[in-house]
C-alpha cells in the first residue's frame, strides 16, 4: 500500500471510531471543520512517527500540516 492510501485508511479509521462520516476526500479540510480534533492530531502524529519516522521535534509543529489527508501526506514525502 502506498503512503497516501495508508494515511487515507488511517484517517478514515479515526473518523469511523468517532462515529462521524468517514467518506472524506483527500483535500477536504479536517481540522477547521472539526472533523478531527487535537486528540486525533496526536494519534496522527504517533502514526507518522511510528510508520514513517517523521520527527516533529526537529521541525516546527504546524497545525496546517494536518488540515487534510493531502497535507498530512506531504509530511512523509
Amino acid at each position: 500500500m502506498d503512503s497516501l492510501a495508508s494515511i487515507r485508511e488511517f484517517i478514515t479509521g479515526l473518523l469511523e471510531m468517532k462515529g462521524v462520516p468517514s467518506d472524506v476526500s483527500d483535500t477536504e479540510p479536517l481540522l477547521p471543520t472539526g472533523l478531527i480534533d487535537s486528540l486525533d492530531v496526536v494519534q496522527t502524529v504517533l502514526f507518522l512517527e511510528q510508520n514513517y519516522g517523521v520527527d516533529f521535534s526537529v521541525r516546527p509543529f504546524n497545525p496546517d500540516d494536518f488540515e487534510s489527508i493531502e497535507s498530512i501526506h506531504r509530511l512523509v514525502e
Partner: peptide, 23 residues
C-alpha cells in the same frame, strides 16, 4: 473539555499541548 469551551481548549492545545507533546 472539547465541547464545553472550545476556543479556550484550542488555545491551551495550540500553545501548551502540541509544543510539549512534540518535544
Amino acid at each position: 473539555w472539547n465541547r464545553y469551551y472550545y476556543y479556550f481548549k484550542e488555545l491551551l492545545v495550540d500553545f501548551f499541548f502540541y509544543p510539549t507533546f512534540m518535544r
